Amino acid sequence: MQLEKSSQRRAQSREWSGTVPTAVDVRVLGLVVATAGLAASVNIPYGGVPFAIVAFVLLAAGGVGVHLLGERQLRRITDGLVERWVDAGGDVESVTRSSDGMRTEWTVRTPRGDVVVGGVALAPITKLSIEWQGMEDTMDAADAEENLDRLADGLYTEIFEIGSATQRA
């Protein structure tokens, strides 16, 4: 009986493709370009148009790089969490890209409800937030990445084990 449940659980979790979609956010990139343009325009009286163009290119490239690094970090964390949940027997139906304001987010669909994993994807200040059933927790992405096993275990217990106990009650 236990073996059948385990097989069914694995079959259900196979609906997840095994990949977390990329989440390069055009709105964040637009903000980066607008900020670079504003900062570069301030340089026109001091260094002329050529200096402003160089400043714009450097600021825009730096901002895009910072966003891409932050997005990769959040994506690695999301992928690691979902992978650990599936390995532990959690049912993950899908992982889709979602958005809220200027945050980069993924929605992890489970039979017990949606888990939203994401945050602000700007490398030096990347924050991870995890929301489930209206409760949200935020932490530094670097700390989350260092303690990913412990984080995944705690969330698995809360979402898949405690969540199933409260649904049965």
Rank of each mutant, 00 (worst) to 15 (best):
I53F: 08
E161R: 07
Q167W: 07
G80Q: 04
I44D: 01
M135C: 00
M139T: 11
S6A: 14
R10V: 11
G18N: 09
R112Q: 13
E83C: 08
D137I: 08
D137H: 12
V95K: 05
I130F: 06
G90W: 00
F160G: 08
E4Y: 03
R103D: 12
R72A: 15
G101Q: 04
Q167C: 01
E131Y: 00
R14I: 00
P124S: 03
D153N: 14
I44F: 05
T126V: 11
I162V: 13
Q12R: 15
R9T: 15
V120A: 12
G119C: 05
V20P: 10
V120M: 11
V57H: 10
Q2G: 15
E71L: 02
E83P: 00
E93L: 12
S7M: 11
R84T: 08
A36F: 01
H67V: 10
L151A: 07
R103G: 00
R27K: 11
R168N: 09
A141P: 05
Q2I: 04
D91G: 03
G65F: 03
R75V: 00
V115P: 08
Q73K: 12
V26Q: 14
K127W: 01
G62Y: 05
E136I: 06
P50W: 07
S99A: 10
Y46D: 09
D140Y: 05
A144V: 02
G48M: 09
G119P: 04
R84P: 06
Q2H: 10
W85G: 05
E71P: 01
R76C: 05
G62P: 02
E131M: 03
E146R: 15
A165N: 02
E83V: 06
D137K: 10
F56N: 02
